[in-house]
Design a binder for these strands. Structure first.
Lengths: 144, 144
DNA sequence: ATGGATGCAAAGTATTTGCATGAGA
DNA sequence: TCTCATGCAAATACTTTGCATCCAT
């Protein structure tokens, strides 16, 4: 029983069948340290011996995203990336040199939340449901 | 002399020639209230009577982005959008219903900046250069 | 068995590249 | 004149769709 067990249950709860490819994809997602693009995820599947099709990967990701199992990240390169949604609320550090993506959890006090949402509702009449915050810069490895 | 005069000078400063298409593109960008995609910008050019080519638009946008004249925005739909960079630091409100994009300027106190950058540098050894913060939700018009 | 899941091919959309021509400086 | 800018076509990349087949339930 690894980390992907919980997500498999979510899959079932959403009426999804538990197929080998799905199981493998969830396992990959749960062990990945960085969000993966469809291409990367497909490559990982193949490395595991599943000769899956890209169409399937796209469809899986779309389904899981819709079901709230994974979340989607958009950076500056036109490629979407996915990570498990239950990895907790965090933000991303994107290295401008090596493109590595790291996570960062902000202390509650620094998290842009309640006050900003209130202000936006008051001033703009816009009801914030979620936010995404990314930091671009140079990572430790590239700064050495 | 409209708002695009300053950006035309930036263009010159970057060794760029001032061509009709460039002038028009900058004027369009400076009068747009929302960030525009290459496709939209091309359509706007054509409406103005410039039968420009999409390749040209892409190249212009790439050049201006590299020169820091415009900034690039990536949402969830796989299309890049561009807006003038000197419109001041702000963030975006993206409506999940109608896809409208509005700007919001956060009061200095709520802006995620110095403290967070320091914390990230200390904890992650990551040197933040810039950040992007987007809010997703439902806009005033769609909430009525 | 039966409806959702998969694979394959083809189509659709966004973006980039090569190369010949055109026009600012 | 001499580059840089432009247009066109073709290529590449990413994603979606149609349809026949397969398999988890």
């Amino acid at each position: 029983m690894d980390d992907s067990t919980g997500t498999i249950n979510k899959l079932r709860a959403n009426g999804g069948r538990v197929t080998p490819v799905r199981r493998a994809l969830l396992q990959i997602l749960s062990s990945n340290k960085q969000p993966g693009s469809p291409r990367q995820l497909l490559a990982q599947l193949k490395k595991k011996g599943f000769d899956a099709n890209k169409t399937t990967v796209y469809r899986q990701l779309e389904m899981m995203h819709g079901a709230g199992i994974i979340s989607e990240i958009n950076l500056s390169d036109g490629v979407k990336r996915y990570e498990l949604a239950d990895s907790g609320h965090h933000h991303h550090l994107i290295c401008l040199r090596c493109a590595r993506i790291d996570d960062v959890v902000l202390p509650a006090g620094l998290e842009p939340r309640v006050e900003i949402a209130k202000m936006i509702k008051r001033v703009k009449k816009f009801a914030v449901e979620r936010h995404s915050l990314e930091f671009f810069g140079v990572c430790a490895r590239c700064r050495e």
